[in-house]
Design a protein around this nucleic acid. Structure first.
Ligand SMILES: [Mn+2]
Ligand SMILES: [Mn+2]
Ligand SMILES: [Zn+2]
Ligand SMILES: [Zn+2]
Lengths: 154, 154
DNA sequence: TAGGCAGTTGCAAATAGTTGCAATAATGCC
DNA sequence: GGCATTATTGCAACTATTTGCAACTGCCTA
């Protein structure tokens, strides 16, 4: 099951509706082919249908995440969205050079499984962002400026 | 080294300054004895010194996190702050009942170590929040409503 | 202790994201 | 297709947070 129909079936299964706005938001993310910001998505949607309200875009981004069709993560103070692949994936973000690396779900899942065994808590995160120092900066930098800045969201 | 002097020494070491506002924010978090919201912190600070500006509180929350004297995490749409203990700790947040459990650093560190070995990336997160289904809800709930809502931060 | 530099603060204005609500429009059913 | 039901949308008001900037004040040095 691919593309457009993925939206239809997934949404219907939850008693929700398929709307053109919803499609446009999903298309915008799909078109980006990777991590896109809220603003880039809104711009792309606007280009296709200028009447779509910003609020609607925000709401549908939340919606698509709930439907698990899209994954999100806050990196460097911005929220990034991306089409959810068959297999989840995660990221390693360098606090010093802002590089964004990837890490397989397999690696991370080991922890999730351990948590499930030890505490019966089922972790279901499909797009984690872990911060730290990348291989390069680790050697280059003597006294890394640890940007810990987190957006509060409001 | 404890309390008030921890602030002094840690801040000085970074060429930064100790100000009464800074102390007040730290005191407010310390007084709470656990997770506190931005707003609770501001209220507490205001009670002690009504002249302190909200912006200053925001800025010092970021600052104290950078100094690693305070840790933060976004849970349920709100940012929570807490005094950083000697040993980091992390949380397990249920998407269904919103309960917030704890998980030791030891458990999580296993993953961080593996990442360091495999990718030479040094993860340094000291207050991670992992979302999923708690032991109770896991049994109780058949079709959990997965609240994936994430604040975008602005 | 006085003076100066750089880090901080308060204020006002700008942003970004959220919420309530009435108007619309997908769906399901006849 | 026509109709009822209810999810969704667009708007406008509102809230929370961020930013620029000039005034202020720790803290180092002489
Ligand atoms: Mn990604
Ligand atoms: Mn905590
Ligand atoms: Zn780096
Ligand atoms: Zn629960």
């Amino acid at each position: 099951m691919s593309g457009a129909n993925e939206l239809r079936s997934r949404v219907r299964a939850h008693g929700k509706r398929v709307t053109p706005q919803r499609q446009l938001v999903l298309d915008a993310i799909r078109a980006a082919g990777g991590h896109v910001t809220t603003n880039e998505i809104f711009t792309h949607v606007s280009a296709a249908a200028s009447s779509v309200n910003r609020t609607t875009v925000y709401r549908n981004l939340d919606f698509l995440c709930e439907m698990r069709l899209v994954v999100a993560a806050q990196i460097g103070g911005k929220m990034y969205y991306e089409i959810a692949g068959e297999e989840p994936h995660h990221h390693l973000v360098c606090r010093h050079c802002d590089s964004v690396g990837e890490i397989s779900h397999r690696t991370v899942k080991a922890l999730f499984d351990k948590i499930e065994r030890e505490q019966s808590f089922v972790v279901d995160m499909d797009h984690l962002a872990l911060f730290g120092l990348c291989a390069e900066c680790r050697h280059t930098v003597s006294k890394p400026k640890l940007r810990t800045r987190r957006k509060r969201g409001g």
